[in-house]
């Protein structure tokens, strides 16, 4: 991020935060990426409740869960816990 840093006259008083953490993607921390097999998934909704990074969301339109790869850190908890073994962890493609 190359954005110009604010001076003391501009920053809010007392260190009050002025950006949401959701502006700070953590997906690039990942070395393994969770991939779900929708065929196997029973939509038990366990994985969204145990993901440390809120990276498995409920999509109201599709009535299904989906990964938010902007934030998934690739911990593998979802894959480890999925009762249907619907999630596998695959190595991220190396950037060329």
């Amino acid at each position: 991020m190359t954005e110009k840093q604010k001076g003391w006259k501009e920053v809010p008083v007392a260190g009050v935060c002025w950006k949401p953490a959701t502006d700070y993607p953590t997906g690039d921390w990942r070395t393994f990426k969770p991939i779900r097999d929708p065929e196997k998934c029973t939509k038990c909704l366990l994985c969204p409740m145990i993901c440390p990074d809120s990276a498995i969301e409920w999509n109201r339109n599709t009535e299904d869960i989906q990964f938010d790869y902007d934030f998934c850190k690739g911990c593998g908890i979802c894959a480890n816990e999925c009762p249907a073994e619907a999630i596998i962890m695959t190595r991220e493609e190396e950037e060329a």
């Binding site: 007392a14 260190g15 009050v16």
Partner: peptide
């Protein structure tokens, strides 16, 4: 500038070398 559920703010964060000094200057 107060803890109000209608208008949430965060007070007392981790403030490192990039902004701590500015807050002290204030």
């Amino acid at each position: 500038f107060r803890l109000d559920p209608e208008n949430p703010i965060t007070i007392g964060p981790l403030d490192l070398y990039d902004y701590y000094f500015e807050h002290k200057r204030q």
